[in-house]
Nucleic acid binder design. Structure first.
Lengths: 341, 341
DNA sequence: CCAGAATTGAGGTACGCACCTCAGAAAATC
DNA sequence: GATTTTCTGAGGTGCGTACCTCAATTCTGG
């Protein structure tokens, strides 16, 4: 009737509490036959460990670090905000989250920062960093120290990270491509803009975008990617130039950071016929642009889910429990003016 | 350094443990001045009640009922599945969920079922039911019995329900309208199909859909809604008829249940030029249709979030804690072939 | 069969909190 | 100032689990 406890298991299995405890917590010194007896009793009674009591008893603290790039980035800002929001209920849940800021572009500095993390004082790390060999090594070191490591938003596929929390960039690019194609029935040119194609995410988005356009929307011609290299002025100049060069520009695909500058440049250059702008990441700027109609669609991932999922996965990994994949899959969200959150 | 406990509060406030306990649990018999002292100590130390320990101590069980319509509905099926999926971690969290099935269309039977719920054995109820005066009354009765009540997926706006977990139907309809307009640059007719416009959700979706089309896409003409009244054969006949009548049909908007039948009818009637089909609710059938290209877009809500959000809200309400709105807002999701989960 | 090792049992303490009792202190009332 | 009423303190118990110790029992291999 009531929830069975360890005592019930002990009675049911005909062993002592100590043995049940040894089995449940995978402690050594129990014969296989006895383990089986206890397991059977657990199954029969449908015993589930009471996590509240367990956490209380073991004085468990989940100490996680979130490693996020510094610098003005609306995406990272929203991420930080989401993390801050999520952390009020955390305290009550024995979760201790620290945020570690890393420089955006200096791989060595990133690695220094990662090495400065004390694995003895930490149970898990969530990392949002560009993939470089140095970062991979640093991640592997954390893994070897026994920490749970998840990649956040941007995957580190060749590292030992336990899990990736985020969306598939190629699929995100394909989604953008599909929208661009469906939104533009007539032929014309599309330009794609990013901060830098060295970023794997931008590259993959572009790959997906191009693939869909060439498979299905051959009436649209995609120009080579314009890179701005973190320079707002350059961004503006290059965009104005490209716009001028394209006689029948129908679409602009903004693949990464710098949405604000792109929008600014567009406002100044006064393109005729209002090209379809599709951007990534829902931020205050892109949200506002959706409202005014300057941006037709935003492809994004819900940062709230991102953060909560990362916390759940880190906790599950720390407990060495199986991860419930379906719940952790972050969806590629399409935001239009009418379904702004 | 460490998390402060009630003992720390007692020391800090210069009172006994018993008094701290009285204040924290709002028990009577404490002078205002003393309450203030304890509050001050709580604030100063940043004390947060350890919910694990608290729940353990008070033997708390959250007993919730989910009231869901019976009958073959892919949406409700996925909802049930999501609920089943969500409930394995629940047991460990002192959550006890029962599912109550109600007939879809008989308001009196629904009410009988709702009345049969024993408020003494329940802490909260999540209800997915069509809004009728009888249902409203039943909800109000539950509220008066002290239960937490949330409306699931479909709101019960004029009842005393504490919260609505779901998406705004008008906005969902507007989103569908915007997509329909953007996907079809040329003029033509659009037909809208639903099971019944008596359902408030369908009605509101239609309102939103029409509003956007008439505001922005006047080149599209929306025909009066086709209703099928739960009859697959009728649905097919009516659709075939409508398709035949529309010389330049460019879009079909499926507002509610019956997506499978609509698709079936379309396959048979072999409409020329492949109209843009936009449907609601992501189910196995609509997902498959997205893959094959028969459906251009699906407007949906994530049932997993729906269920988890409902559970969170019910628990929060039972604890008489404030709800963190931003986290509970369910997004209107647009699913295309490329961002299928 | 016996020594040594491996396994098991009995019991305890602790975690942080809820809830209870009862005595004693402080305040309010007359 | 005496008496009632209202507050407060000290202490205890229990929730379900983790983790520890020590003794008792069972199992091995020789």
């Amino acid at each position: 009737m009531n929830k069975p406890t360890v005592h019930d298991i002990a009675k049911e299995a005909g062993v002592s509490l100590a043995t049940v405890d040894r089995v449940l917590n995978a402690r050594p010194g129990v014969r296989d036959k006895t383990i089986a007896k206890v397991q059977a009793a657990v199954d029969r009674l449908g015993y589930v460990r009471d996590t509240s009591a367990a956490n209380l008893a073991r004085q468990r603290q989940y100490r996680f670090a979130f490693v996020l790039p510094e610098g003005p980035s609306q995406f990272v800002d929203t991420l930080r905000a989401a993390l801050a929001e999520a952390s009020s209920p955390l305290v009550a849940d024995r979760l201790l989250v620290t945020i570690v800021t890393i420089p955006s572009h200096d791989p060595h500095a990133i690695v220094r920062r990662l090495r400065s993390l004390n694995p003895a004082r930490l149970d898990g790390v969530a990392i949002l960093a560009p993939e470089t060999p140095q970062v991979r090594d640093a991640v592997d070191r954390l893994k070897e120290a026994g920490l749970a490591v998840v990649a956040l938003a941007s995957d580190l596929p060749n590292s030992q990270r336990d899990y990736f929390i985020g969306i598939n960039s190629i699929a995100a690019g394909r989604t953008a491509g599909l929208l661009m194609g469906r939104f533009n029935a007539h032929q014309g040119q599309v330009i794609a803009v990013t901060n830098s194609l060295r970023s794997r995410d931008s590259l993959e988005r572009r790959l997906g975008f191009d693939a869909v356009l060439s498979e299905e929307f051959s009436h649209l011609e995609v120009r080579p990617t314009i890179e701005s290299y973190d320079d707002p002025q350059r961004m503006e100049a290059v965009i104005c130039d490209a716009v001028a060069r394209c006689p029948d520009l129908v679409g602009i695909y903004s693949m990464g950071v710098g949405n604000t500058q792109i929008l600014e440049a567009l406002r100044r250059s006064r393109v005729a016929g209002r090209p379809t702008v599709i951007a990534h990441e829902l931020t205050p700027a892109t949200g506002q642009a959706l409202r005014t109609g300057e941006v037709a669609a935003v492809i994004t991932q819900n940062v709230g889910h991102l953060v909560r999922s990362a916390l759940r996965v880190l906790r599950t990994l720390s407990d060495r429990m199986p991860i419930f994949e379906a719940q952790e899959r972050i969806r590629i969200e399409i935001v239009l003016r009418e379904n702004l959150p």
